[in-house]
Simulated assay, not measured.
Amino acid sequence: MLEKDERLDHIAGTSYKIVQSDQVFTYSIDAVLLARFASIPLQKGRILDLCSGNGVVGITMTERTKALISLVELQEPLHSMALRSIKENGLEKQLTPLCADLKHIRDYFAHGYFDVVTCNPPYFTKGDHEQIKLESTKALARHEISCTLDDVIAAGSYVLKHGGKFTMVHRPERMVEIIETMKQHRIEPKRIRFCHSSATKPSTMLLIEGTKGGKPGLVCEAPLFVYDQDGKYTNAFNKEYFDV
């Protein structure tokens, strides 16, 4: 089940376990918050999670929906983790992982096939960063080496049906670029939420959702603060992240 340097961790706010490795990949709060923020069907439907990593977003969403969920991840080591995590949690009938390049999404799925697309993409543009040279697996997950923001949104738009939802977590400093790119691919931004480490700190995370072919009208939801003035988790964060 577990390979060298791997461990089995608990996914916050769920009854599920997930295979992780500090040497390759570990999920962070952005993945769980994305899974909780996304508007997903409760029963029937089809969901696609792009840049799915070790499967944490897809696995977390299964606590909220009975829809069929497909995962697309480029890196085989992360795909392997997802396969084993899905088996560990007995979710083989609901989750289908695919090791593939999202830039070739048309080779795997039909146009308009999905009701919802989620994505926790690489946040940083490709640059002369030491991590890119030293830690290829982590670098691919964090930097736009194998896919760009436009690649991600283009893939999501292609497989989304008209009226379908595209939900992503990203960095606030790229918000203008994100909105422009979504609109270029006929995804109209409808909901946005900024996440802050505390009420006195700038936002470090952006949750955004759009509708394929939707009408203009963006709702900015209440910000989410992780820590209160005493350094403890806020009630809002406990509810969103730990479901308590």
Rank of each mutant, 00 (worst) to 15 (best):
Q131L: 15
V117I: 05
G127F: 05
C119F: 00
F225S: 15
K4W: 05
H170G: 08
F194M: 11
K201N: 14
E92C: 10
G55L: 09
L140H: 12
M182N: 04
G112K: 03
K161G: 07
T60S: 14
S28H: 07
N238D: 12
L95V: 15
L34F: 10
I145P: 03
K133T: 06
I40G: 01
H196I: 02
R171N: 01
C195N: 01
S80H: 13
C220Y: 12
C99F: 06
R186M: 12
G127E: 15
K201V: 10
E209V: 04
T96G: 00
I179K: 08
A38T: 12
I86M: 08
M175S: 04
Q43F: 06
S15T: 14
R84E: 09
L98P: 02
T60K: 13
D101Q: 13
Y16T: 10
S146F: 10
V57W: 05
H162A: 15
I145Q: 03
S203F: 08
T148H: 04
A222D: 14
F114S: 09
M168N: 07
Q94I: 02
R84D: 07
T137P: 08
T148Y: 03
I40L: 03
G13F: 11
C119E: 00
I18R: 06
K103Q: 11
N120Q: 05
V19P: 08
A12H: 07
L42W: 01
T167K: 03
R191L: 12
D115N: 13
D128K: 10
Y123D: 05
T14E: 05
P216R: 03
T118G: 04
R193V: 09
S28W: 03
L83W: 00
A31W: 04
S198C: 14
A31N: 01
T148L: 12
T14W: 10
E135M: 11
P122C: 00
T96K: 09
R174E: 07
H129S: 13
Y27K: 14
F124T: 01
E173H: 14
V57C: 12
